[in-house]
Design a protein around this nucleic acid. Sequence first.
DNA 1: ATACTTCCTGCAACCGGTTGCCGTGAGGAG
DNA 2: CTCCTCACGGCAACCGGTTGCAGGAAGTAT
Lengths: 322, 322
Amino acid sequence: MPVTIRDVARASGVHVSTVSRAFSAPHLVNPDTRSRVLAVAEGLGYRPNRAARALTTGRTHNFGIIVADIANPFFPPLIKAAQAHARSRDYNVFVADTDEDPQVEEEVIQTLSKQVDGVLLCSPRLTNKAIERLREEVPFVVVNRRIRGMPTVLMDVGQGASLAVRHLTELGHRRIALVSGPAGSWTSKAMHEAVATAGADAVFLGPNAPTEQGGITAAADVIASRVTGVLAYNDLVAIGLIEGLSERGVRVPEDVSVIGVDDIVAGRLNRPKLTTVSMPAAAAGRVAVDMLLQAVDDVAAATVTTLETSLVVRESTGRART
Amino acid sequence: MPVTIRDVARASGVHVSTVSRAFSAPHLVNPDTRSRVLAVAEGLGYRPNRAARALTTGRTHNFGIIVADIANPFFPPLIKAAQAHARSRDYNVFVADTDEDPQVEEEVIQTLSKQVDGVLLCSPRLTNKAIERLREEVPFVVVNRRIRGMPTVLMDVGQGASLAVRHLTELGHRRIALVSGPAGSWTSKAMHEAVATAGADAVFLGPNAPTEQGGITAAADVIASRVTGVLAYNDLVAIGLIEGLSERGVRVPEDVSVIGVDDIVAGRLNRPKLTTVSMPAAAAGRVAVDMLLQAVDDVAAATVTTLETSLVVRESTGRART
DNA sequence: ATACTTCCTGCAACCGGTTGCCGTGAGGAG
DNA sequence: CTCCTCACGGCAACCGGTTGCAGGAAGTAT
């Protein structure tokens, strides 16, 4: 029922190969013939079948984006930017949610591998080994995780953490806590290292769940540690922490300053408005797609792009009481 | 380089058609042969190419989900649920963001049409006419918009609005405002009608931008209208409204009760925690995929599924002052 | 022993495009 | 006028699978 290239050929009195070339190799066909063919195609409502084309060209013009949890507010802006950028390059994108399950992640990569030219792995949960192996089947670009020899886009949370600590010390805070996230994540490590070397008197609290509840729970530890400035693993934790502190009569920012990471919408809506390390998620999405486009024809390239983060000062940080 | 069905055939000494059947029609091949073929395939790391398969079967085993804005917190849970459900039925999903642009929406549908078995249109911005036309090319299921003769999943905001109004009247509020959203949206109309017939003394304020800023701006109108209960177009508006009211010295819920719609994360994080009409987004995603699966082989079906909403009472509503 | 099933497998066409190769005819050079 | 070049477009094979058809082998009924 759908109109194919042969219908167009028949209707315009040329061979299918000519129709094909009219679309994908214009310089090889007489301008008059071409415009006639295009007119007929238009009239018939013909659209080239990309899947069929992929069969011979080996280019699907599709990408895959794999994330652990679409509903995590950190990812949608990244996906949105990546998708928009891909579209501008005439690529469509599959999006798959692995529900934090490495097993699912592997399966998804498998089923996607033949229908895409490359995959964006956002904070993958698979082991390095598994990723190396799957790389044989489809090109990857990894976001927010360091894997040797693989094209990578990193958002420099370490640098962001330094910014945050500097901001706190400039406000006069001497004792600072890092309320960290799950043990062993790349992000946690980078933050830990940055805070440790930032030259302040630092205490490390955690691991904690990377959620609002994790922050609420951590409030007691923060109070016990007698710090006046806190850098939280992410905005959700920061928001929970502020809530936990206020339940215990500690005020933000009057008594304790709190900084989050991610700059999600909820932080801007929070009262006090959250001071936070803003992640260049949209930029990361675009860069990753660019690297994917490059990886498509130049398999060897294994660049590492590191994106700067920035500090957004709002209302949850203030001068230390003297 | 990737291993094909012919490689497997050669390596296991059978014809390609036998390999094909070993995978997709097991009952047609001798159990011994089958297990031998599967073993060889496994050893070679063979994966059937779904795109190639689609060419002959006419089933791509892909769906498309089209939304106006992935970053709108309402959509990710829906996408997540739809994707997970689709995966359990062995379907992959494309996700496309149209940036609220009907033109882009149409283009995206066009390029996707041949690579998917159906498309989920979430709150489409296209005209009915355009959608009817595109329907010729690919089956649709429409979410959150009413289009005659088309499979549809609706979340009953009207019923949710009734719930909200009833909650307010039970708390003793006599004058109620509906702070509506953009003019002409299906949602706005449904809410308007529900509030108008809910039997309270109602005033209608708007149209407003469906954002936090829209809510802040509407605060003045709300105060001027001397209501004590408000139903906002969505949670963002409600949060903005609460902020706008508090800037003007009006307290929530002591002076005015506010109810939102959507139940986004930010509402739960807000202070006061937002009372809201919760939308069954995940259920909608699952149901929509089920309808899509059905539409794939039974083009005629044009069911309308309406999902109930529920009221989540938190802290932004309270008893009217007597 | 013959005829009829049933089960299994091979053959080859086909899905919708792409592309290397070749033939044709027009135009330019000599 | 002849020869060469080259732009154009047709032919057919191919991409990786699927599937209707047919045929051979084995089993069963007569």
